[in-house]
Write a protein that binds this DNA or RNA. Structure first.
Lengths: 225, 225
DNA sequence: ACCTGAACACCGTTCAAGT
DNA sequence: ACCTGAACACCGTTCAAGT
């Protein structure tokens, strides 16, 4: 329940713009025109206010983006998780995936352009050929290639942006701050791992995951008679 | 060997700017200041020429980016591939990965910002907890989580940008054009799959790869006695 | 306290004009 | 044929001034 009367103080002008109003307009704009169209100026126009006004309710554009992502995350319903650990992993991963897939712009906020040319296709050929020679159908071979590609793109991308962000070093990395302030009773494993997290995620585990994907997607190796 | 004399014709001014000169300057600029700093105007300044001049040698900024990526791909040495199919997959994947990792800006061209907040951590907790309950050490659990995260980010990202690019529909999708013009003797499997490629990559195979990663990274399930 | 216009330092791109 | 300046339609952000 918002205060029906502006709080007392040095008696100023009553606010005509609220933070939630801004976030709503931002979502509306993104849904209608795509997230690339979310500019401070357009957002202000959408609300019907001067661009400079927004800087009274939001620190800068990045602050606005972060708020937008957090609001969306808050709204994802906590899934009922199965007891079996393996199933629990699959379920949580799926929710994670589906949440992102429902609003692709959220992941698109992390991306921009894709331009893959002809001269790198020999690698694709090698992977597809290897899969077929291992007994895959062409369909399975393509699935295998795509899984490797997704995993590879994700790995490079996440690590690159993390490094990038660390290098900019303006603010204290944000994620570390988040991790250290965790509720032990709500997220026990993460809280226990919080201090080791930076060093654990610094490791190069690309090969680890790569082998898992390849082993998991090739037809189970039958020992030749 | 470039012609020592400008080719005859309606006798014009001799070129002071070449396409390769532009690409060199672009790489220099990216290496020095990061790819975000690659703007048409800065690039022109780096060369010492008016911004508008560049539009005589390059169609637009996207053309420049694409050229940059293709040039880099051309320069990756064709790896000697092992005979064993499984090993061949690993090798090609690794080259692919290493090539991107060597110049992170190439993948960063596909990305922009990462901002993951506190309220989605319950999913991470569920995955890590499930892994530990399955017999993983904390280290292994984090490896598993990261692999899933990379794979998921990559999948969403690649598909989203692909869809996005398809929606813009200005030019004929580029990749399709590339695929159809393949040399059958050089890339036989890809050439054979070229026409089915769009439909094959349109399929949702997220679960496929996800199960492979999880199965591959959990300790081999010992049937309980 | 809240909102604003003017201003700053940028973008990518077009186009008529110069050599 | 090649290069240019002026111009257009934009960005994000700051800051002194208004109510």
């Amino acid at each position: 329940m918002p205060p029906p009367v502006p709080t007392r103080g040095p008696t100023g002008r009553p606010p005509r713009t609220s933070r939630t109003q801004i976030m709503d307009a931002a979502r509306r704009l993104i849904d209608r025109d795509g997230w690339q169209m979310l500019t401070v100026r357009r957002l202000a126009a959408e609300i019907g206010v001067a661009p400079t006004t927004l800087y009274h309710h939001v620190r800068d554009k990045e602050d606005l983006l972060r708020q937008l992502l957090n609001d969306y995350a808050d709204q994802i319903p906590r899934a009922r998780l199965p007891r079996d650990p393996h199933e629990r992993i699959i379920t949580a991963s799926t929710v994670m995936h589906d949440s992102l897939a429902a609003r692709p712009w959220i992941t698109e906020v992390l991306t921009a352009d894709d331009l893959v040319g002809t001269s790198s296709l020999w690698m694709v050929e090698a992977i597809v050929a290897g899969a077929i020679d291992s007994g895959c159908t062409p369909e399975q071979a393509v699935v295998l290639y795509r899984s490797v590609w997704y995993y590879t793109v994700g790995e490079i991308l996440v690590r690159a942006t993390a490094a990038h962000r660390r290098a900019e070093s303006s603010r204290p990395v944000y994620r570390d701050a988040v991790l250290l302030g965790l509720d032990k009773s709500e997220l026990p494993h993460l809280a226990a791992l919080a201090d080791r997290w930076p060093s654990l995620t610094a490791r190069d585990t690309y090969q680890h995951g790569l082998h898992a994907i390849v082993d998991g997607l090739l037809p189970s190796t039958v020992t030749p008679s």
